[in-house]
Amino acid sequence: MDMQLLLVEDDPEIARVIQDTFIRDGYLVTWATTGLEGLEDFQSQSYDLVLVDLMLPEMDGFTLCKNIRWKSDVPIMIISAKKEDEDKVAGLNLGADDYLAKPFSLVELKARVESLLRRWRRYKGVPELNQMTNYTNGLTINWDQNKALIDGTEVYLTTKEFDLLKVLAQNPNQVFTKSDLYQHVWKQADAEGLHTVTVHIKSIREKLKDPVKQPYYIQTVWGKGYQFVGEIR
């Protein structure tokens, strides 16, 4: 089966060289020119590895890496002209697996990609986690079917509501700002969308019968955002 690569690079000359090189080697390559486009591509299909530039329009590479990590453990390699150690450390701390500074040789790039893919294939050999998670106070999330149930009865959540619940629940006790959530779920950087997040979180809480003052599942972190505090049983 062909390996699927996502390349997020706004320089067309560099992107075409990388894309042509990997296509010749039998890879399938999707090329995105902005961070938001890259996030949308990533969320729309499955990839085996992501190549990310740091200096991107609409959403920078650091933010893109963070968004990808909330959803997946797929290998991420940063390719960037930013050579400072703090940029490398920041990228790796956000979940990137490797960092290659421009200019680089295609031979080295291919070798590092192949190394990451070998590790990824070994990792994917581990059985998947249970597709159903049960929490105290009656909540069950079926990840496979995108369903939430309270005491065994399905709760109707819209697609956006489930996507919000999913990113929070799959990253428990991590604080997400409204901006983080809006970018990740709506794939837009518009600050006017922050009220939309508030409305959707309120709707989720009502449907899950989640008390605001002493929440079972979604806790407001005042001045920061929201975090998932549900306890697995």
Rank of each mutant, 00 (worst) to 15 (best):
N134V: 10
Y135I: 04
Y135D: 02
Y135E: 08
N137A: 11
L139G: 05
L139D: 10
L139E: 01
T140D: 04
I141N: 08
I141P: 03
I141Q: 04
I141Y: 03
N142T: 05
N142Y: 09
N142L: 05
N142D: 00
N142E: 05
D144T: 01
D144Q: 15
D144G: 06
D144F: 15
Q145I: 00
Q145Y: 04
N146E: 11
K147W: 03
K147T: 03
A148N: 08
A148C: 06
A148R: 05
A148G: 06
L149K: 11
L149T: 05
L149I: 11
I150G: 08
I150M: 08
I150V: 12
I150A: 02
I150C: 00
D151G: 04
D151H: 14
D151K: 11
D151L: 10
G152C: 04
G152A: 08
T153N: 07
E154R: 12
E154W: 01
V155R: 08
V155M: 09
V155A: 00
Y156K: 12
Y156F: 11
L157V: 00
L157T: 00
L157H: 01
L157S: 05
L157C: 04
T158D: 09
T158C: 06
T159Y: 12
T159G: 00
T159I: 12
K160S: 02
K160V: 03
K160L: 06
F162I: 05
F162R: 00
F162Y: 09
D163M: 06
L164N: 00
L164T: 01
L164A: 07
L165I: 05
L165W: 08
L165H: 03
L165D: 06
L165T: 02
K166T: 05
V167W: 09
V167R: 10
V167P: 06
L168I: 02
A169D: 05
A169F: 14
A169S: 15
Q170P: 14
Q170E: 12
Q170Y: 10
Q170I: 15
N171E: 04
N171L: 15
P172Q: 04
P172L: 13
P172G: 08
P172F: 10
N173I: 12
N173C: 09
N173G: 08
N173A: 01
V175H: 09
V175Q: 02
V175Y: 07
F176G: 04
F176P: 14
T177Y: 11
S179H: 12
D180M: 12
D180Q: 13
L181V: 09
Y182H: 12
Y182M: 10
Q183R: 13
Q183P: 13
Q183T: 15
H184D: 11
H184E: 08
V185Q: 07
V185K: 10
W186V: 07
K187G: 00
K187V: 07
K187A: 03
Q188Y: 07
Q188G: 06
Q188R: 13
Q188F: 05
A189E: 09
D190L: 15
D190H: 11
D190Y: 08
D190N: 14
A191M: 15
A191R: 13
A191G: 07
E192T: 13
E192C: 09
G193F: 13
G193N: 11
L194I: 13
H195V: 10
H195Y: 13
T196D: 07
T196V: 09
V197T: 12
V197A: 02
